[in-house]
């Protein structure tokens, strides 16, 4: 059974259909890259998976548990959306770190808030805090940011901020980590450090969906590539199939812009 099964997702904003009948599956440990031009619906798809947008049609299933069924209001309760979101992590294009917290606090905050909801929190407050702190420090070290743990976001470069954001998303141990154009807001010389982190995560078999414009990176790192256009999945396959030998005319036209 696939870890993630998305069936027939549709979404429109007003009269514009942004997603039409999107289906995809993702196995545990797999890295999926979604490519396509601006406005093709890639970002909206990620936002649907994280319940920042509500799909008008289709189902989302993780680990056999149906998280969303557009035809079944029982799966759409606002109160449960929150817990369902925790299956997914999302790294934003422009980081969205919390400016008033240090790198370490950014990574720890959500975990502490979740721990506070546990009935035995008061008793074990110290231990929980210590555990979360050492986990957060380990994640920052993994991102190569040990020395920056006490820095505030505005004291960090874009690449460092994005790596903190990745650590923050990893801290909640999501089943699937989503990246929405994680290097698009970065200067070219800073994209490398973020891509290296993504590569390392892929090597550790982190289940990931990466929306990206970095074709070389997608080709090298992703297990599978999905090309979207006009809200549809146009072509899907291994990097060799989609990037090296695209079958569809639309894919070929899109990639021609990149093969400079």
């Amino acid at each position: 059974m696939a870890l993630l099964e998305v069936q027939g997702i549709g979404k429109h904003f007003g009269g514009t259909e942004v997603l039409r009948d999107i289906s995809l599956t993702l196995e545990k440990g797999e890295a999926l890259a979604i490519i396509g031009s601006s406005g093709s619906g890639k970002t909206t798809l990620l936002r649907c998976l994280n319940f920042l947008e509500t799909p008008d049609a289709g189902t989302i299933t993780v680990n056999g548990e149906q998280l969303w069924d557009a035809a079944n209001p029982a799966t759409q309760r606002e109160s449960e959306k929150r817990k369902k979101r925790l299956h997914f992590g999302l790294v934003f294009q422009n980081f969205n770190l919390f400016p008033q917290y240090t790198a370490l606090q950014n990574v720890m905050l959500a975990g502490e808030l979740l721990a506070q909801e546990q009935p035995d929190y008061q008793k074990n407050r110290r231990q929980i805090h210590t555990r979360l702190e050492s986990e957060a420090n380990a994640l920052l070290a993994q991102m190569g940011l040990s020395e920056r743990a006490g820095h505030y976001p505005h004291q960090l470069s874009g690449g460092q901020q994005q790596r903190v954001a990745i650590a923050r998303a990893l801290a909640l141990k999501p089943d699937i980590l989503c990246f929405d154009e994680p290097t698009s807001a970065l200067d070219p010389e800073l994209t490398g450090e973020v891509l290296r982190v993504l590569r390392a995560l892929a090597d550790q078999k982190t289940t990931m969906i990466i929306v990206t414009h970095e074709m070389a990176f997608a080709r090298d790192v992703a297990d599978r590539i999905l090309f979207m256009d006009g809200g549809l999945v146009v072509e899907e396959g291994t990097p060799a199939e989609v990037i090296e030998h695209p079958r569809e005319a639309r894919t070929q036209r899109f990639l021609a812009n990149y093969n400079a």
């Binding site: 994280n50 319940f51 929150r82 925790l86 934003f92 770190l97």
Partner: peptide, 9 residues
């Protein structure tokens, strides 16, 4: 949105 994605109320 960052807060929502991190499961905050």
């Amino acid at each position: 949105e960052a807060g929502q994605v991190l499961g905050m109320t």
